[in-house]
Nucleic acid binder design. Structure first.
Length: 288
DNA sequence: TTCTTTGTTCCGGA
DNA sequence: GTCCGGAACAAAGA
């Protein structure tokens, strides 16, 4: 579920907590993630200093002073926890449904200087971590084919209108196609199309220029807004019950099947269908 | 036991 | 060559 905003929030959080620390020890309790972890390779990270954290699409990079980087994808449920010297625990992000920290799913533990511990936790193990050369980030097979960042200036009217010429798929399939634009997943795609008042199953060839402008506008707006909300919720994570957090209220359609449309004066019920095997939520009345 | 969830990848057909 | 849709895959909770 982590899409671009969540990954960006994780990035900022890691920056605050682990930048400039040195990896003292790596303990791997389960090496079977999406791709198998090579224990020896990870143990060699001992002594490396964390220079910076960066992000591209839904990928995170922890860049080390030795020319190596950890390439991380959080998959569906991947998350980082940080425990500091005062034994305080921080979660680096939150998702629309809060999942509490279950130690059972801690797979990789990085012991850092200043008594900080970084934990990679992943219930489904769909995420992965690879060690690559920092200089080869852009040519890495996961990265090189990614389309533009949705918040960048490259993702603009000109790009959009050129990219959709002769395309036949649905508008929804286009928005979650990482080669077209990278970082949008099923959840934000549903939200963007609701705000743009476009039915997700519409074919691209029927989308007007006015509508592509709307999609561009709301894509940038909602991604930015979510990044802001993420930052503000992390601050008060420490409270024992993690069930608060206003993220869920942000959703207008996602996972709201059978509930009322949030548009003013609209009494429609949100519908759920499947497009390319992915759940799609929309209002029949508001989204044409 | 079966169904659901996701991003990514792969494959066959057009 | 390229595009597109469908299915497979990873794991675990309900």
């Amino acid at each position: 579920m982590p899409e671009l905003p969540e990954v960006e929030v994780v990035k900022k959080s890691l920056e605050n907590k682990i930048k400039n620390l040195i990896i003292k020890k790596v303990i791997i309790t389960n090496n079977k993630l999406r791709y198998r972890i090579n224990r020896k390779e990870f143990h060699k990270l001992q002594g490396n200093k964390i220079k910076s954290i960066s992000r591209r699409s839904k990928y995170l990079f922890i860049n080390l002073n030795t020319g190596l980087s950890l390439l991380i994808h959080l998959g569906m449920n991947g998350k980082f926890f940080i425990i500091d010297k005062k034994k305080q625990k921080y979660k680096t992000s939150f998702y629309y449904n809060i999942i509490n920290h279950n130690l059972k799913h801690d797979h990789i533990n990085f012991y850092l200087t200043k008594k900080v511990k970084l934990i990679y936790n992943d219930v489904r193990k769909f995420g992965f971590i690879k060690i690559i050369k920092t200089s080869e980030i852009n040519t890495n097979k996961h990265i090189k084919l990614l389309g533009p960042e949705p918040l960048s200036n490259i993702f603009n009217k000109n790009y959009f209108n050129k990219a959709i010429i002769n395309k036949k798929k649905s508008i929804k399939d286009l928005l979650i196609d990482q080669k077209f634009v990278s970082g949008i997943g099923n959840i934000y795609c549903n939200e963007i199309l609701y705000l743009s008042r476009i039915n997700p199953s519409r074919g691209i060839k029927n989308i007007t220029k006015k509508e592509t402008n709307k999609i561009l506008f709301y894509t940038k707006k909602i991604l930015k807004k979510s990044i802001e909300k993420g930052g503000s919720t992390i601050k008060d994570f420490n409270s024992a019950d993690g069930k608060t957090g206003g993220f869920q209220q942000l959703f207008n359609v996602y996972a709201r099947e059978g509930k009322g449309c949030k548009t003013k004066n609209c009494s429609e019920i949100i519908k759920k269908t499947y497009i390319s095997n992915r759940s799609s939520f929309f209002c029949l009345k508001c989204q044409k």
